[in-house]
Design a protein around this nucleic acid. Structure first.
Lengths: 265, 265
DNA sequence: CGCCAGGTTGAGGGACCTCAAGAGACGTGG
DNA sequence: CCACGTCTCTTGAGGTCCCTCAACCTGGCG
């Protein structure tokens, strides 16, 4: 999160190699993106970026920081839907008659780059690579939503906790290095984990205590320490190769390499 | 599910006004789609279309019938991820090193139209409308996945059951009419509902008994009878306008419109 | 007719919740 | 600097929702 990124154009952005911006590497695309996006904006922790029910919500490209999207039930129950890390995008979902069905809030300090919906559609029309990249990112996110469904529907509390921490550790390692191979910044609170995992903060606490006493991991002062990665991998139960979708800057499945229309099929 | 649809080309398909095919209404697009797709294929109930871990899975366009996608945990626990109805598409998600992370299975008799991945990418390159339509459908599906996350994480068993039945009733009413305003074909078994809702079939049964005794609904012989729609709407708790995303054949958000929006910091 | 998957009901248990209370961490203002 | 409030973390005790196990019934199908 440098000051350069903060105020200057896309060409100096440290995220150009990640996320959506990866699709606008050429100068024409970068200029087009820069013409439709808003300047990057800083948010303090715990700030609502947009609330559930908002109308005409712009897309939000995460330049730095952690955020989460959530859905509120009428009686106040909250379900956290996804965690957003640098390179992710929020607000792609269509809005119903009652506006967008989820809200977005910061976990840590964050810098976001907003793109209005109509401007984004212009960008997509000009740069097919953006549409393609966007579709790929959404498909990738859906595989993670599937994992999350399996977590909420069919995993025990301790599996849920481990699964979430493993996912976030791998995803965050794309842009943030481990401090010393085992320690990693993890700006989660136990109430947040509870709302993400369908549990209560009290039970999260008990599970973390067990894992700590068993020497598997430690989580305090917003820092995760991995002590027994083998047990963690077993408890988490990720499909092989799934999390690598986040660590590879380029999608393994190259859809179209050239702008020229391919030869007759 | 007529024989005409079954054997002939896209131009005679009754689903041309729905789903992905809506984006290829012109003759050039239809010809392009027809050149990359496989012939429609019939599947009996309970048949696996593709298994979790398959490689290079083609897209599957649902022409008729009900299906579900699922994810298996190593010890055999199963989570149903989504139900697919006519007009939906399966297999869009990217594959990791261990293949696709979910499987697909039929609930009822079904007719599917397969599209190989490379052919689909050629189609997308030729018809930008397909890419756009595909992205919109995925975003729409994500809103439903969000609802499902809230269901699994934060709703009681009876809310889960009602929520699922309401969702499927509205979605299926797009292509299938209610028999008499209250009765609807619903080819679900209680074990299937259990794996979709993170419960056991036994508990599903008890919840359905309660709802039946309270005069809210009945579900037997694969037929849903709605008796108290007000209670159902209250228990289900859908955001206003969300389910209409499935009943409207055209997306309400037209991407080509570009109006000036206030640009505020 | 026999088989088998699904539906139905009961009894007991376990995973997690609710309520309650105190300790620690952090920012704010005096 | 400390007082103070708020949020988070932590632990205990009791309760509840849902699961597990078991049994029997029903309906479709060879």
């Amino acid at each position: 999160m440098t000051v350069v990124t903060w105020q200057s154009g896309c060409s100096a952005c440290h995220l150009r190699a990640f996320g959506l911006c990866q699709a606008v590497q050429d100068s024409r695309g970068a200029a087009c993106l820069q013409s439709v996006r808003h300047p990057a904006r800083f948010y303090p922790p715990g700030r609502t970026v947009f609330a559930q029910g908002s109308q005409n919500v712009p897309l939000h490209n995460v330049l730095s920081g952690w955020l989460f999207s959530y859905q509120l039930l009428p009686d106040g129950r909250r379900q956290i839907l996804q965690f957003l890390l640098p390179g992710d995008i929020a607000g792609l979902e269509p809005e119903g008659a009652a506006g967008i069905t989820h809200g977005l809030e910061t976990l840590s300090e964050a810098v976001l780059c907003a793109i209005p919906r109509d401007g984004f559609h212009r960008l997509c029309a000009r740069c097919p690579a953006v549409t393609e990249r966007c579709r790929w990112m959404m498909a990738r996110d859906v595989t993670l939503l599937f994992e999350r469904l399996a977590t909420l529907g069919r995993r025990m509390a301790r599996e849920r906790v481990v699964h979430l921490l493993m996912e976030l550790a791998v995803r965050s390692s794309r842009t943030t290095q481990f401090a010393d191979g085992t320690r990693l910044r993890m700006p989660l609170t136990q109430p947040i984990m509870a709302d993400a995992l369908g549990l209560t903060a009290i039970h999260i606490n008990r599970v973390l205590r067990e894992l700590r006493h068993e020497g598997v991991l430690e989580l305090n002062h917003k820092t995760l320490t991995i002590l027994d990665s083998e047990t963690l991998t077993r408890l988490g139960g990720f499909p092989e190769g799934l999390l690598e979708l986040w660590t590879q800057p380029l999608p393994p499945e190259q859809p179209t390499q050239s702008h020229a229309t391919p030869r007759r099929a």
